[in-house]
Amino acid sequence: MDDQIRNLIQNHIDNNDVCLFMKGTPDAPQCGFSMAVSNMLKILEINFKGVNVLEDQKIREGIKTFSDWPTIPQLYIKKEFIGGCDIVKEMYENGELKKILETKGINFKK
């Protein structure tokens, strides 16, 4: 991965408290796993940045190298890599995701 892509990915993570690298957009997910994570964040009423990896093959491959995680979607909260769909789903179901968001000071929509 070149520095330009690494920096672009890092900027998305640095400038968004909740950043989801996904296939498609939050309003039009193009993969069931991306839709699932996006919907969990919407249900929790969290503002988040969706980065559509389908728009740029370099980002799509780069994020996998960046996080050393083989699949998309990938969720970052306050610059910390949380995981992919299965991990986020488990955390959502057991209440851990909401707890992490609260602990990190993420504001829920009112």
Rank of each mutant, 00 (worst) to 15 (best):
residue 48 F to T: 01
residue 39 N to Q: 15
residue 32 G to R: 12
residue 34 S to L: 12
residue 35 M to H: 13
residue 70 P to L: 07
residue 69 W to G: 06
residue 42 K to W: 04
residue 44 L to C: 04
residue 66 F to C: 03
residue 40 M to L: 15
residue 55 E to M: 11
residue 68 D to M: 01
residue 70 P to C: 08
residue 48 F to V: 02
residue 40 M to P: 05
residue 68 D to L: 01
residue 62 G to A: 08
residue 65 T to E: 15
residue 56 D to C: 06
residue 63 I to K: 04
residue 63 I to C: 04
residue 55 E to P: 00
residue 56 D to S: 07
residue 67 S to F: 10
residue 33 F to I: 12
residue 42 K to S: 11
residue 41 L to T: 06
residue 56 D to M: 03
residue 56 D to W: 01
residue 48 F to D: 05
residue 68 D to R: 09
residue 49 K to E: 15
residue 42 K to D: 09
residue 68 D to A: 10
residue 46 I to D: 11
residue 49 K to F: 03
residue 37 V to S: 10
residue 35 M to R: 15
residue 41 L to W: 10
residue 34 S to Q: 11
residue 34 S to C: 11
residue 36 A to P: 00
residue 60 R to I: 04
residue 33 F to M: 15
residue 33 F to C: 12
residue 62 G to N: 07
residue 38 S to I: 12
residue 42 K to V: 04
residue 53 V to R: 05
residue 65 T to V: 15
residue 45 E to K: 15
residue 53 V to K: 06
residue 68 D to I: 04
residue 67 S to H: 10
residue 40 M to T: 07
residue 66 F to P: 02
residue 34 S to V: 11
residue 69 W to C: 07
residue 32 G to F: 12
residue 40 M to A: 09
residue 43 I to D: 14
residue 52 N to I: 00
residue 42 K to G: 07
residue 30 Q to Y: 04
residue 52 N to S: 00
residue 50 G to Q: 09
residue 61 E to D: 15
residue 46 I to A: 12
residue 51 V to G: 08
residue 45 E to W: 00
residue 43 I to N: 14
residue 59 I to R: 02
residue 61 E to P: 01
residue 52 N to P: 00
residue 41 L to I: 08
residue 58 K to I: 00
residue 52 N to G: 00
residue 60 R to G: 06
residue 30 Q to F: 07
residue 46 I to Q: 12
residue 57 Q to G: 00
residue 35 M to L: 14
residue 52 N to V: 00
residue 54 L to I: 07
residue 30 Q to I: 02
residue 44 L to A: 05
residue 59 I to P: 06
residue 61 E to G: 06
residue 52 N to E: 01
residue 34 S to A: 13
residue 36 A to C: 10
residue 47 N to I: 05
residue 69 W to Q: 08
residue 38 S to D: 10
residue 53 V to Y: 04
residue 68 D to T: 12
residue 42 K to I: 10
